[in-house]
Amino acid sequence: MMNEGMFGGHLIWMLIMAAIVVIPFWRICSKAGYSGWLSLLILIPLANLVFLYFLAFSKWPSHRKFR
């Protein structure tokens, strides 16, 4: 019975933390010229590291427009 209340609190905390992480990555992806939906990869373990390196070292579509 006690665990039911704790689970709800943990779920809310996890959603808040996910929003704190996903929203800035959504903006970064949008400014880079990628779909904002790619930012959801940050929530997946190991995929988040691959995605971070992809963003850091790839040629961004928004920069290709200027060349």
Rank of each mutant, 00 (worst) to 15 (best):
I16S: 07
E4R: 06
L46A: 10
S62T: 06
F7S: 09
A56G: 08
P45I: 07
W60V: 00
F66E: 08
I42R: 04
L11P: 02
I12P: 01
L43I: 15
L11Y: 07
G9K: 12
H10S: 05
V21H: 03
I42Q: 12
A47T: 02
L15T: 08
P24L: 11
S62Y: 01
F57I: 10
G8D: 09
F25D: 08
K65G: 00
M1S: 14
S30W: 03
Y34N: 08
I12W: 04
I23D: 04
W13D: 08
G36Q: 07
P24V: 08
L49S: 07
L11H: 02
M17E: 10
N48S: 09
H10P: 00
G8C: 09
I12R: 05
I28L: 13
M6R: 14
N3Y: 11
S58I: 08
F7E: 05
M6C: 02
L49P: 01
H63M: 12
L41W: 04
I12H: 00
S30A: 12
I23H: 06
W13H: 03
Y53I: 12
G8P: 00
W26F: 15
R67N: 09
I16R: 09
N48L: 01
A32I: 05
A56W: 13
R27A: 14
G33V: 10
S35C: 06
L43Y: 02
I44L: 13
F25W: 15
I44R: 04
I16A: 10
P61E: 01
I12Y: 03
L15E: 05
I28C: 07
R64Y: 02
I12M: 10
S39W: 01
W37Y: 13
S35N: 11
L55N: 04
I12C: 07
N3W: 12
Y53D: 05
Y53W: 15
K31F: 08
M17W: 14
A32C: 11
G33M: 07
A19S: 12
N48E: 05
L11A: 11
P45A: 06
V21L: 15
L43G: 01
I42G: 01
M2F: 09
G8W: 09
H10W: 12
H10Q: 10
I44Q: 04
G33R: 06
K65C: 05
F51Q: 03
R27S: 04
I16K: 14
L46W: 15
S58R: 13
N3T: 11
F57S: 09
M2S: 13
S39R: 05
G5D: 02
K65Y: 04
A19Q: 06
R27K: 14
